[in-house]
Amino acid sequence: MSNNTDFLLSIENLTVSFDGFKAVNEVSAYIDKNEIRVIIGPNGAGKTTVLDLICGKTKATSGSIKFKGRELTNMKEHEIVLAGVGRKFQNPSIYEDLTVFENLEISFPRGRTVVGAIAFRRDAEVIDRIKEIAEMIFLEDHLDLKAAYLSHGQKQWLEIGMLLIQDPELLMLDEPVAGMSVSERKKTAELLHRIIKDRSVLVIEHDMKFVEDIAHRVTVLHQGKVLSEGSMERVKNDPKVVEVYLGH
Protein backbone atom coordinates (compact mmCIF):
# COMPACT_ATOMS: atom_id res chain seq x y z
CA MET A 1 0.00 0.00 0.00
CA SER A 2 3.03 2.22 -0.07
CA ASN A 3 2.40 3.33 -3.61
CA ASN A 4 -1.15 4.34 -4.37
CA THR A 5 -0.62 4.56 -8.07
CA ASP A 6 -0.58 0.77 -8.34
CA PHE A 7 -4.33 0.83 -7.84
CA LEU A 8 -6.84 2.26 -10.23
CA LEU A 9 -8.78 3.77 -7.37
CA SER A 10 -7.54 4.27 -3.85
CA ILE A 11 -9.82 5.60 -1.17
CA GLU A 12 -8.09 6.57 2.04
CA ASN A 13 -9.61 7.63 5.35
CA LEU A 14 -12.64 8.98 3.57
CA THR A 15 -15.08 10.72 5.88
CA VAL A 16 -18.17 12.76 5.25
CA SER A 17 -20.36 14.15 7.93
CA PHE A 18 -23.80 15.67 7.54
CA ASP A 19 -24.49 17.95 10.50
CA GLY A 20 -22.21 15.87 12.67
CA PHE A 21 -23.57 12.52 11.51
CA LYS A 22 -20.79 10.60 9.87
CA ALA A 23 -22.42 8.82 6.95
CA VAL A 24 -19.03 7.55 5.83
CA ASN A 25 -16.40 7.22 8.52
CA GLU A 26 -12.71 6.67 7.80
CA VAL A 27 -13.32 4.32 4.91
CA SER A 28 -10.32 3.03 3.02
CA ALA A 29 -10.50 0.77 -0.01
CA TYR A 30 -8.29 -0.03 -2.96
CA ILE A 31 -9.55 -1.21 -6.31
CA ASP A 32 -7.30 -2.84 -8.87
CA LYS A 33 -7.46 -2.53 -12.61
CA ASN A 34 -10.09 -4.86 -14.06
CA GLU A 35 -11.41 -5.74 -10.65
CA ILE A 36 -15.09 -6.17 -9.92
CA ARG A 37 -15.79 -4.97 -6.44
CA VAL A 38 -19.18 -5.26 -4.86
CA ILE A 39 -20.21 -3.17 -1.88
CA ILE A 40 -22.86 -4.71 0.32
CA GLY A 41 -24.32 -3.70 3.62
CA PRO A 42 -27.60 -2.97 5.37
CA ASN A 43 -29.68 0.12 4.59
CA GLY A 44 -28.04 3.33 5.71
CA ALA A 45 -24.57 1.79 5.72
CA GLY A 46 -23.27 4.55 3.45
CA LYS A 47 -22.93 2.56 0.24
CA THR A 48 -24.53 5.08 -2.07
CA THR A 49 -22.75 7.90 -0.26
CA VAL A 50 -19.41 6.30 -1.12
CA LEU A 51 -20.36 6.36 -4.81
CA ASP A 52 -21.59 9.95 -4.44
CA LEU A 53 -18.22 10.89 -2.97
CA ILE A 54 -16.25 9.23 -5.75
CA CYS A 55 -18.23 10.83 -8.55
CA GLY A 56 -18.23 14.25 -6.89
CA LYS A 57 -21.94 14.51 -6.13
CA THR A 58 -21.11 14.86 -2.45
CA LYS A 59 -17.99 16.62 -1.20
CA ALA A 60 -15.84 14.74 1.29
CA THR A 61 -15.26 16.22 4.74
CA SER A 62 -11.81 14.65 4.89
CA GLY A 63 -9.77 11.90 3.31
CA SER A 64 -8.68 11.31 -0.22
CA ILE A 65 -9.89 9.55 -3.36
CA LYS A 66 -7.22 8.98 -5.96
CA PHE A 67 -8.07 7.74 -9.43
CA LYS A 68 -5.02 6.85 -11.52
CA GLY A 69 -2.98 9.03 -9.18
CA ARG A 70 -5.31 12.05 -9.56
CA GLU A 71 -7.10 13.45 -6.57
CA LEU A 72 -10.85 13.45 -7.25
CA THR A 73 -12.11 15.16 -4.10
CA ASN A 74 -11.50 18.67 -5.43
CA MET A 75 -12.60 18.05 -9.01
CA LYS A 76 -15.97 18.98 -10.49
CA GLU A 77 -18.42 16.26 -11.49
CA HIS A 78 -17.92 16.60 -15.22
CA GLU A 79 -14.15 16.64 -14.82
CA ILE A 80 -14.35 13.36 -12.91
CA VAL A 81 -16.39 11.91 -15.77
CA LEU A 82 -13.79 13.10 -18.28
CA ALA A 83 -11.09 11.48 -16.13
CA GLY A 84 -12.79 8.13 -16.76
CA VAL A 85 -15.32 7.49 -14.02
CA GLY A 86 -18.88 6.62 -15.01
CA ARG A 87 -21.75 6.34 -12.61
CA LYS A 88 -25.18 4.77 -12.86
CA PHE A 89 -27.82 5.94 -10.46
CA GLN A 90 -30.11 3.75 -8.44
CA ASN A 91 -33.29 4.89 -10.13
CA PRO A 92 -32.90 4.78 -13.86
CA SER A 93 -32.08 8.35 -14.83
CA ILE A 94 -32.54 8.65 -18.53
CA TYR A 95 -33.99 11.37 -20.72
CA GLU A 96 -37.60 10.30 -21.07
CA ASP A 97 -38.54 12.87 -23.71
CA LEU A 98 -35.78 11.77 -26.06
CA THR A 99 -35.50 8.61 -28.11
CA VAL A 100 -33.20 5.76 -27.18
CA PHE A 101 -30.93 6.86 -30.01
CA GLU A 102 -30.79 10.43 -28.74
CA ASN A 103 -30.17 9.27 -25.20
CA LEU A 104 -27.11 7.39 -26.38
CA GLU A 105 -26.04 10.18 -28.68
CA ILE A 106 -25.97 12.73 -25.88
CA SER A 107 -23.78 10.37 -23.91
CA PHE A 108 -21.37 9.89 -26.82
CA PRO A 109 -18.04 11.32 -25.64
CA ARG A 110 -17.64 14.08 -28.19
CA GLY A 111 -18.84 17.69 -28.34
CA ARG A 112 -19.23 18.11 -24.61
CA THR A 113 -18.80 21.87 -24.59
CA VAL A 114 -21.40 24.39 -25.76
CA VAL A 115 -19.56 25.01 -29.02
CA GLY A 116 -18.86 21.31 -29.43
CA ALA A 117 -22.54 20.50 -29.02
CA ILE A 118 -23.51 23.03 -31.68
CA ALA A 119 -20.87 21.76 -34.09
CA PHE A 120 -21.61 18.10 -33.35
CA ARG A 121 -22.53 16.07 -36.42
CA ARG A 122 -24.21 12.70 -36.43
CA ASP A 123 -21.60 10.94 -38.55
CA ALA A 124 -21.01 7.29 -39.33
CA GLU A 125 -18.76 6.80 -36.33
CA VAL A 126 -21.48 7.98 -33.96
CA ILE A 127 -24.19 5.92 -35.61
CA ASP A 128 -22.09 2.76 -35.68
CA ARG A 129 -21.11 3.12 -32.07
CA ILE A 130 -24.70 3.74 -30.99
CA LYS A 131 -25.87 0.67 -32.89
CA GLU A 132 -23.10 -1.41 -31.33
CA ILE A 133 -24.06 -0.30 -27.82
CA ALA A 134 -27.78 -0.69 -28.51
CA GLU A 135 -27.21 -4.28 -29.51
CA MET A 136 -25.26 -4.89 -26.33
CA ILE A 137 -28.05 -3.54 -24.13
CA PHE A 138 -30.81 -5.41 -26.01
CA LEU A 139 -32.38 -2.22 -27.37
CA GLU A 140 -31.35 -2.37 -31.03
CA ASP A 141 -34.99 -2.60 -32.12
CA HIS A 142 -36.10 0.38 -30.03
CA LEU A 143 -33.70 3.09 -31.19
CA ASP A 144 -36.49 5.39 -32.33
CA LEU A 145 -38.71 4.79 -29.35
CA LYS A 146 -39.14 7.52 -26.77
CA ALA A 147 -37.28 6.40 -23.66
CA ALA A 148 -40.39 7.07 -21.55
CA TYR A 149 -42.06 4.04 -23.16
CA LEU A 150 -39.36 1.57 -22.12
CA SER A 151 -39.94 -0.92 -19.32
CA HIS A 152 -38.15 -0.42 -16.02
CA GLY A 153 -35.55 -3.02 -16.86
CA GLN A 154 -34.98 -1.55 -20.32
CA LYS A 155 -34.47 1.87 -18.76
CA GLN A 156 -31.80 0.41 -16.49
CA TRP A 157 -30.09 -1.12 -19.51
CA LEU A 158 -30.30 2.14 -21.39
CA GLU A 159 -28.56 3.97 -18.58
CA ILE A 160 -25.86 1.31 -18.50
CA GLY A 161 -25.54 1.76 -22.27
CA MET A 162 -25.20 5.51 -21.83
CA LEU A 163 -22.23 4.85 -19.59
CA LEU A 164 -20.73 2.19 -21.83
CA ILE A 165 -20.68 4.50 -24.81
CA GLN A 166 -18.27 6.70 -22.84
CA ASP A 167 -16.03 3.71 -22.22
CA PRO A 168 -15.13 4.62 -18.63
CA GLU A 169 -12.21 2.91 -16.90
CA LEU A 170 -14.18 2.75 -13.71
CA LEU A 171 -17.86 1.97 -13.89
CA MET A 172 -19.99 2.44 -10.80
CA LEU A 173 -23.39 0.80 -10.67
CA ASP A 174 -25.91 1.41 -7.91
CA GLU A 175 -28.21 -1.61 -7.61
CA PRO A 176 -28.34 -2.42 -11.30
CA VAL A 177 -30.81 -5.29 -10.96
CA ALA A 178 -33.16 -3.76 -8.38
CA GLY A 179 -36.76 -3.98 -9.49
CA MET A 180 -36.01 -6.29 -12.38
CA SER A 181 -37.87 -9.46 -13.28
CA VAL A 182 -36.07 -12.80 -13.09
CA SER A 183 -35.45 -12.94 -16.82
CA GLU A 184 -34.27 -9.35 -16.90
CA ARG A 185 -31.92 -10.12 -14.01
CA LYS A 186 -30.37 -12.97 -15.95
CA LYS A 187 -29.90 -10.81 -18.99
CA THR A 188 -28.37 -8.05 -16.89
CA ALA A 189 -25.87 -10.46 -15.33
CA GLU A 190 -24.96 -11.57 -18.81
CA LEU A 191 -24.61 -7.94 -19.88
CA LEU A 192 -22.43 -7.10 -16.91
CA HIS A 193 -20.19 -10.08 -17.55
CA ARG A 194 -19.66 -8.81 -21.05
CA ILE A 195 -18.98 -5.18 -20.17
CA ILE A 196 -16.62 -5.73 -17.25
CA LYS A 197 -13.84 -6.79 -19.53
CA ASP A 198 -11.08 -4.21 -19.66
CA ARG A 199 -12.48 -2.05 -16.91
CA SER A 200 -12.97 -1.89 -13.19
CA VAL A 201 -16.47 -2.01 -11.84
CA LEU A 202 -17.80 -0.94 -8.50
CA VAL A 203 -21.26 -2.32 -7.81
CA ILE A 204 -23.71 -1.86 -4.99
CA GLU A 205 -26.09 -4.79 -4.83
CA HIS A 206 -28.36 -6.55 -2.37
CA ASP A 207 -29.05 -9.64 -4.41
CA MET A 208 -26.62 -12.14 -2.88
CA LYS A 209 -26.85 -14.65 -5.67
CA PHE A 210 -26.03 -11.91 -8.13
CA VAL A 211 -23.13 -10.72 -5.96
CA GLU A 212 -21.66 -14.21 -5.74
CA ASP A 213 -21.99 -14.51 -9.44
CA ILE A 214 -19.99 -11.43 -10.38
CA ALA A 215 -17.81 -10.24 -7.48
CA HIS A 216 -14.06 -10.62 -7.38
CA ARG A 217 -13.98 -9.07 -3.96
CA VAL A 218 -16.62 -7.78 -1.59
CA THR A 219 -16.54 -4.87 0.82
CA VAL A 220 -19.10 -4.85 3.61
CA LEU A 221 -20.08 -1.46 4.95
CA HIS A 222 -21.89 -1.00 8.22
CA GLN A 223 -22.76 2.34 9.84
CA GLY A 224 -20.32 4.15 7.59
CA LYS A 225 -17.37 1.90 8.33
CA VAL A 226 -15.76 -1.03 6.57
CA LEU A 227 -16.86 -4.09 8.48
CA SER A 228 -15.17 -6.71 6.38
CA GLU A 229 -13.46 -7.10 3.06
CA GLY A 230 -12.28 -9.98 0.91
CA SER A 231 -13.59 -12.75 -1.28
CA MET A 232 -17.28 -13.58 -1.12
CA GLU A 233 -16.40 -16.87 0.58
CA ARG A 234 -14.47 -15.09 3.34
CA VAL A 235 -17.01 -12.35 3.85
CA LYS A 236 -19.90 -14.80 3.98
CA ASN A 237 -18.29 -16.66 6.84
CA ASP A 238 -17.23 -13.60 8.77
CA PRO A 239 -19.25 -13.74 12.01
CA LYS A 240 -19.48 -9.93 12.19
CA VAL A 241 -21.04 -9.82 8.73
CA VAL A 242 -23.46 -12.61 9.49
CA GLU A 243 -24.57 -10.79 12.59
CA VAL A 244 -25.33 -7.38 11.06
CA TYR A 245 -26.30 -8.25 7.55
CA LEU A 246 -26.50 -11.74 6.17
CA GLY A 247 -28.12 -13.21 9.26
CA HIS A 248 -31.34 -11.32 8.68
Binding site: E77, H78, L82, R87, F89
Partner: peptide, 11 residues
Protein backbone atom coordinates in the same frame (compact mmCIF):
# COMPACT_ATOMS: atom_id res chain seq x y z
CA UNK B 1 -35.49 16.23 -17.31
CA UNK B 2 -32.35 14.80 -15.69
CA UNK B 3 -29.87 17.48 -14.83
CA UNK B 4 -27.64 15.14 -12.83
CA UNK B 5 -27.45 12.59 -15.61
CA UNK B 6 -26.19 15.29 -17.99
CA UNK B 7 -23.68 16.44 -15.42
CA UNK B 8 -22.48 12.88 -14.85
CA UNK B 9 -22.19 12.37 -18.58
CA UNK B 10 -19.34 14.85 -18.61
CA UNK B 11 -21.07 18.14 -19.36
Amino acid sequence: DQEDRVRFSGY
